[in-house]
């Protein structure tokens, strides 16, 4: 199976690429790529469910808002992701249902301070979607 995401070199921050057969799948994998910088999502129990919606003006800003929402959830609700259970995109509006847990008792590697637009792209390549993003650590 192809890997859902991978990390790239970036001097100061964390850069990743996430893949998916659909745009939705690529977005889901981008969320996983992001959370695995913070912790091992495999070890986070799917105990809490959360739903949110973001609307951007294009795909990039929708991605920015989507990932930024996670930074917000970690800081304000100490939420750690297990996975994005459902995700639908309609135009530039994205709805997501997440499952995860609060961070108490989890091994946290580092915190993400902020989302960035640096080197961001969303592309369709060889029949799959590729998302690249850099987060500020």
């Amino acid at each position: 199976m192809e890997k859902p995401y991978e990390y790239l070199e970036h001097t100061a921050d964390a850069k990743f690429r996430a893949y998916g057969k659909t745009l939705e799948e690529a977005f889901k994998n981008a969320a996983l790529a992001m959370f695995n910088i913070i912790t091992d999502t495999g070890k986070v129990a799917p105990r809490i469910e959360k739903t949110f919606e973001v609307t951007g003006e294009d795909r990039e800003s929708m991605l920015y808002d989507f990932l930024e929402q996670f930074v917000f959830l970690v800081d304000t609700e100490h939420f750690l992701l297990h996975e994005v259970k459902e995700l639908s995109i309609d135009g530039f509006t994205l709805k997501a249902t997440l499952v995860g847990d609060t961070l108490a008792g989890h091994d946290v590697h580092t915190a993400i301070k902020s989302m960035t637009y640096n080197d961001m792209f969303i592309r369709e390549e060889d029949g799959r979607f590729v998302i690249q993003a850099v987060v500020d650590l």
Binding site: S61, Y64, V71, F72, D75, K113, S114, Y117
Partner: peptide, 28 residues
């Protein structure tokens, strides 16, 4: 987080208000 959120908020706001600018700048 307060400072980072402030930056994100205004980055997005400036983008929304000046959509033409994005294409002109070498980096969004």
């Amino acid at each position: 987080g307060l400072g980072h959120q402030t930056c994100s908020d205004y980055l997005r706001e400036m983008e929304k208000q000046n959509p033409d600018l994005i294409a002109q700048l070498p980096d969004r």
